[in-house]
Computed example of a mutant assay.
Amino acid sequence: MEATASRHVPPRRSSVEPPALVPALSRALTLLDRLAEGRQPMTLARLASELSLPKSSVHGLCNTLVSFGYLRRQDDGAFMIGPRVMCLAEAFVHGTSVAQEFSALWKDARTAPEETVLLSVLNGAEVVYVAARNGLRPLGLAFNVGMRLPAHLAATGRAMLAWHDEAFVRRLFPGPTLVRMAGKGPKTVAELMKELTLTRRRGHSIDDENVREGVYCIGAPVFDATGQPVAGIGVCIHKAMLGSDHGERQRRVVVEAARLLSRRLGGELPLPESAPAARRRTRS
């Protein structure tokens, strides 16, 4: 029987090839990222050490970035982020829609969350629900896009209010008492301020039957590239369905979604118990 000669078959390439990167551009962007993370000027020697690059290479990168305005050289020779980056940031913010990015977030995930996730924005002293991602479990609650609720009662509203300063909150709620919907929730602005402090410490807000009897909601803030809380993400479930973990699973879903959406907008979610001063700049 004649033996069949074996042919060499080259390995099949993956259908998804890694993108080709330009080394010099990659090093320049890494340098900018390092300066942005450090938030302080850095010398040429320190940049070379932290990037594990020769001083001559870093010197050339810095000179190029300085000439284009993306870096600025101090009198002592240290480098810091230059004003030209603001043009990029402004262009990014101008072309970004929180509702569109929310929809894209779940499109990229390719899987539906277990619970329905809601997105709202502040409109005066109210929240307006602008988007929802239906979950595997039916919500069983009438939360519709366009619906409004008092911001001091809704979990997503408190999540946003907590990272504004007290003056901003008091302008929204000038009266001595606050409206209540289900007989629970803060009755005065002083009580609301205490609840917002607790929200910052936890890193998320809780609506325990403040809006509707038997309904438990968890909310987390969404930040944009300017550090502003521009939206709130929340999950609402029947209180009887909290389970033995008291809503910990839902909390993780909400916080992670808020973190990912913030990053899509160029922002970052603050850590629990972090000082909110840097985040509490209000819009004029």
Rank of each mutant, 00 (worst) to 15 (best):
P41H: 10
A125P: 08
L31N: 08
D76Y: 10
S26G: 04
A112R: 03
R39L: 12
A45G: 03
A99F: 04
A125L: 02
R27N: 06
P54Y: 02
A45R: 08
L65H: 05
D76Q: 10
D76R: 09
A91N: 14
N123V: 12
S52M: 05
P83S: 15
L53D: 05
H94G: 07
A104Y: 12
A78W: 03
V127T: 14
P41N: 12
S52Y: 05
E126S: 10
Y70C: 10
A48T: 04
R84K: 14
D108V: 13
Q74H: 14
F92D: 07
Q74L: 15
R73N: 03
A36I: 12
L32M: 14
M80R: 11
L53Q: 12
C62M: 04
F79L: 13
V58P: 01
D108S: 13
L118F: 00
L29W: 08
Y129P: 00
R34Y: 08
E115M: 00
E115S: 00
D33P: 00
A91Y: 11
V121Q: 09
V66N: 04
F68M: 07
V117I: 12
G69M: 06
T64G: 09
H94A: 15
V58K: 02
S120E: 02
E90H: 13
E115Y: 00
M80H: 13
F79W: 15
P83L: 14
I81R: 08
V85R: 11
R84Q: 15
G60K: 04
S97K: 03
P41R: 14
L31S: 09
N63P: 00
L47S: 01
P54H: 08
T96L: 11
T96C: 11
K55M: 09
I81T: 13
V130I: 15
A28R: 15
N63W: 02
R46S: 09
T111N: 06
Y129L: 10
A99I: 05
R73V: 12
A89R: 15
L44R: 06
